[in-house]
Every structure is written in C-alpha cells, then in structure tokens.
Amino acid sequence: MFEGDRKRMHLGRYPSMSLAEAREVHGKALADVERGVDPGAVAREAKRARKAAPTFGELLDELWDIELRHKKSGAETRRLMDHDVTPAWGKRRVQDITRRDVVLLLDSIRARAPITANRVHGALGRAFNFAAERGIIVDSPCTRIRKPVEKPRERVLTDDEIRAFWRGLDSIDVYPATRLALRLILVTGQRPGEVAGMRWAEVADDWWTVPPERMKNGLEHGVPLVATALDLLEQARDFPGGDEYVFASSRGGGKKPITVRSLARSVTRHCEEMGIASRFTPHDLRRTLRTRLAELGVDDVVAEKVLGHQLQGILKVYNRHDYAAEKRAALLAWERRLRGILGLEGGKRKVVPLAGFKG
C-alpha cells in the first residue's frame, strides 16, 4: 500500500534473480514506503534514466534494430564490435566514453591487427554519430582521431604459386565446398563474399546472375560461366544439404552458406603447406585474375565489367552496354591461360575435371 492505493511491484524473474536478492529488493521497497517514497516511481525513474543514458551494449542493440540489420554489411559490423569492443565497453555508459578511451582501445587492437583497427575505427565512428543523432551524447568522441592510411594490397600470384595453390588444395585438410569456392574465385574473379553466398537459383545454363542485394554496388551482375567454372559447380552438386546454396556450410543442415572468414582461414592456415611462402588472401585471387586480364590484352573497361565494377565518369551515365559477349571472351581467354599454367594446354572445348588434377 502507498498513500491508500494497493500497488504491485515487479521484482525480477527466477532464477536470474535469486530469492535472497528478491527479499533484499522487497525490503528496500518497504523502507521507501515507510519514508513516504513511492518505490514504483523510483523504479520508473531508474528505467527512464537507463534509457536516457544507455550502456555501449544497449547502444549497439539500438543501432542494430534501427540500422545495421538492414545493411548487407550490418552482421559483419556487429560481429566486429561484439568481438573487439563489447568486452571492454559493453557495460559502460556511452556518455562516459572519452576520446582517450577510443584511442587506447584502437591502439590495443592495432598492435595485433592493424587492418581490423581501421575497421573498428570506422564502426565506432558510425556508432557514436548514431548516439549523437539519437540525443544520447552531444558529440562523438571519435572526432579528430585520424585513421592511418591503408597501403593498397598488391599481392598477385605468380604462375608457380597458381599451380601450387590449385594442386595444393587437393592435399590439405579443408572442407570440400571451401576448396571449390576458392577455385571459383580464381576462375571467375568474383568477390569472396559473392562466391561464398552463391545460390543455385542464381545459376541458369552458363550464366550466374548475382542479385543487387548481394553486390557491393547494389547492381545486378552477370557472370559468364566457362567450362572450368561449370565443372566446379557440377562437383558442388554432389555435396549433401546444398539445395539452396552452392557452397553450403557443414553446419545448420545446409541451410547456410560457407563464410568469407572460413575461406580466409583455409588460405592463411595452409598457405605454407601448399608450398606458397608469401601469404595471400582469397581477395588476392580476384586481383590475380584482374592483373592477368590486363596481361592478356583485355580492355580495361571489359576487365572492370568482369569484376562487377561500375564504369566511372561520363561512361557511367551514357554507356549502357551490358558487355556480355566481351566478358565471356575475356574469361575464356583467362581460362585458356589458366589451363596453360596448370599444364592442360590443347584439346577440344569441354568440361575438364581440373579439381582432381594431380600433375
């Protein structure tokens, strides 16, 4: 009873709140009533204060609900923050986090992973700007913190490394779908994420159409599938559980695709085992194809269209050609070059089981 009115107060849920804790909260509420204080009003004010001054973890939840879950990169951004930021700041009030806190956190991440530090820097900048937009803080503590300029990667595999990569995939302990996906990146030049998430519904005859929502630039992209690519897809059909995804994960009963992280781990863990001294990433396979197209004399505009890049400047506005025939010719030229590197020159055009090639 408080001032003649009977009121109920929610203390908590068992077992997250023990009986001893419930008795303690109940005792404090009774003490408030005896002092003329409404414990319900106190609880409501505390809830309002928590909402007005959320913790960093609560800010991330709000950012996820309103913004991140609608973005293609949202899940990866959330994973990055949960891994590198939440353990340190999850329970801290957003308004208590200073620029110095941000600097020290980024320094600790940069000491072990410079590129990751830059990614976290960008994610934090957006999170704190979001907090300012929502009235949680006045200004972002990320302002005036310079982000180191990343040196563009230049890694391109040599002929010897391409042979070692292709053949080495057969001898290392790697998930079969991962093996095929890595080869498809080299054959088609598409982004690791686009290959990893490839769906059977996107493939028709000898074309692969990547929908806008899976493209970095938000535009539909057609990829010609040469014989080697078709052979890799045919092998993928033999894997159980891959009814939706071409490269289905071993987890979740084939309802999820393999991840870009799994592709990267397979390369970094087994690089030396494949006989390649200098480390490379799955994205370097894409860069290798782009470089080799230039060596083969493929026009830069065509090569960029193969990779799914937008044309720039006035070409972007007025050139609406789809370059379908030119892209196929470019990838056929690369396939011939790749077969030559692997020692498979000559012969009629047909599907060749390169995945089983041992040399």
Rank of each mutant, 00 (worst) to 15 (best):
residue 92 R to T: 08
residue 315 L to C: 05
residue 278 S to P: 00
residue 295 E to N: 12
residue 193 G to N: 06
residue 104 L to I: 10
residue 210 V to M: 03
residue 16 S to P: 04
residue 53 A to N: 15
residue 72 K to N: 04
residue 230 L to R: 14
residue 240 P to T: 01
residue 285 L to Y: 04
residue 84 D to Y: 00
residue 221 H to L: 02
residue 85 V to N: 03
residue 176 P to D: 13
residue 168 G to F: 05
residue 62 E to L: 15
residue 346 G to P: 04
residue 111 A to S: 09
residue 215 M to V: 01
residue 161 E to I: 07
residue 262 S to M: 11
residue 45 E to W: 03
residue 107 D to T: 06
residue 17 M to F: 14
residue 141 P to G: 11
residue 71 K to Q: 15
residue 195 V to A: 12
residue 227 A to K: 14
residue 10 H to A: 09
residue 37 V to S: 01
residue 213 E to G: 08
residue 235 Q to Y: 10
residue 8 R to D: 09
residue 192 P to K: 12
residue 285 L to R: 00
residue 122 G to K: 01
residue 226 V to R: 06
residue 142 C to V: 01
residue 355 A to H: 11
residue 29 A to I: 13
residue 198 M to L: 12
residue 86 T to G: 02
residue 250 S to F: 06
residue 71 K to H: 09
residue 218 G to D: 13
residue 87 P to M: 13
residue 7 K to G: 01
residue 189 G to R: 00
residue 251 R to W: 11
residue 75 A to Y: 03
residue 88 A to H: 04
residue 119 R to Q: 09
residue 147 K to I: 02
residue 245 Y to L: 11
residue 53 A to S: 15
residue 18 S to L: 14
residue 6 R to F: 03
residue 349 R to D: 13
residue 326 E to A: 14
residue 141 P to N: 13
residue 66 I to S: 10
residue 80 L to S: 04
residue 88 A to M: 00
residue 203 V to I: 15
residue 343 G to N: 12
residue 56 F to R: 10
residue 252 G to L: 11
residue 183 R to H: 06
residue 9 M to K: 06
residue 119 R to T: 09
residue 290 R to D: 06
residue 211 P to K: 02
residue 273 E to P: 01
residue 63 L to F: 15
residue 83 H to D: 05
residue 152 P to Q: 05
residue 336 R to H: 11
residue 168 G to W: 07
residue 201 A to Y: 01
residue 295 E to R: 13
residue 146 R to D: 04
residue 151 K to A: 06
residue 285 L to H: 07
residue 340 G to W: 10
